[in-house]
Amino acid sequence: MAVEELLAARGLRIYYHTMTGVVKAVDGVDLKIHRGETVGLLGESGCGKSTLGLSILRLLPSPPAKITGEVLLEGVNLATLSPDEMRKVRGRQVTMIFQDPATYLNPVLKIKDQMAEMLGPQISGKDTNVEIGRSLDMVGLRRSVMASYPHQLSGGMKQRVLIAMAIMSNPLLMIADEPTTALDVTIQAQILNLLEEIIRKTGISVLLVTHDWVVVSKIAQKVYVMYAGKMVEHGETRSVYERPLHPYTNGLMNCVLDVNRKIARVPSIEGYPPNLANPPSGCRFHPRCKMAIDKCRTEEPPWIEAENGRFVACWRVT
């Protein structure tokens, strides 16, 4: 039953050395993605999830970012690769799609030219067009899109193009950073269905970085929950939904409104997310946690496997 580990991050720390101090965006995080899995990385703004996603592909400007810890892709530590080797990984073995497709498409190039760029010099001429056509088919776009410019496409279509570009090279892993957040609700549903289909057809592994629990619950088998630069909970999505162990996860899921059920007081979590340049002592969630005890204020809880496959960092659970 041991499915192969595709990506493993161990003790990952990403600190930004700014003029006003050190911002600990990601502070000691472990993460595993197995082959064929879709893993959600869930958290609110400023928790470090996007930073983590970008760091896997070494897309963070460093300096000012300083990255320590391991990121192993098929056993190879990405931190040890040279820039050239890393470039080969990026866009071929590991690809990424982002929240706002418009900013990642060159407005003065036709779609087919941009997609051809992604394919690289190995393929050329007729083969290029064949590959591009095939990818566009996979994302449900008409071939005529090839000759269009980005501004002629709608938001949903642009995102489909980005997805097509991301799967063209048959990558092992796709990192999707808030892929549907900027889209309208009806389009969001289309894109999520598309992602599900592509995952099914290609067996690609996906790291889905998002703040939206419902997106995670739709397509991710497992989920990691982050808060203030730390990992607080992990497990199978269903299990985490039915029985959240960490008070933050519990509080967060309570906040998800169900359109089918009206409740009088809209739930929320008291207080505000902390300043990562000066985070709270001990457990970073303790100022907002209804279950905090003295230990939570002084000592950071360890990341341990509380049950089979369920990890959590909370003194009240262990």
Binding site: S154, M157, T186, L192, V215, K218, T237, Y241
Partner: peptide
């Protein structure tokens, strides 16, 4: 969408075609 992963898998929702 629903928060319950089970609910999301069970309901066959056919999204609207086309763009806004």
């Amino acid at each position: 969408l629903k928060a319950d992963p089970k609910a999301n898998r069970m309901t066959e929702y056919k999204p609207l075609v086309g763009d806004v």
